[in-house]
Amino acid sequence: MDYIILIISSLLINNILLAQFLGNCPFLGTSKRMDTAIGMGIAVIFVLTIACIVTFWVQHKVLDPLGIDYLQTVSFILVIAALVQLVEMFLRKFAKPLYTALGIFLPLITTNCAVMGAALLIIRKEYTFTQGVVFAIASASGFTLALILMAGIRERLEISDVPLALRGTAIGLITAGLMALAFFGFQGMDAALTALVRS
């Protein structure tokens, strides 16, 4: 039950993009077309999950025993960057179609703040390994969801009569803001859900 709450919470209530405002750069950059958005979304799910697994291990097996927590950010960046490279090589060798499909998005998200943020949050919230993986997948799915919604809206904006001054990124940011407002409606739902389950 807790896992369901965790999934709903990280997918909708604390949506990594629209509630925590992490990863706004690809959110605006790759949401112009639906197929790009889907590609980016899948790449994020893929990388974020693997990155969280590895950073979890680094935190608990390296940083904690040595007592050098303050190196968390630096070492996470290093680890994630190396990891993405490795994954890219692996995919290229053994899964060429997936490699071509993910294409440019893999290296693009090497140091994406959504990936970094999720990895750090897992440590901060003191999740167990399983909780951490579920959280990672759900957060990344939340990212993908927001990205696809945005792409759908922007494809329509493309053919709409937008005032000249607002065309392009401006209307994109306004749309993102309005979407965040809509997602704001989910706030507090997690507490209510928890209470419902406990009672």
Binding site: V62, I68, L71, S75
Partner: peptide, 10 residues
């Protein structure tokens, strides 16, 4: 320690 760790990780 920290230098060694980063060196090791790198």
């Amino acid at each position: 320690e920290s230098i060694a760790l980063l060196l090791f990780l790198g």
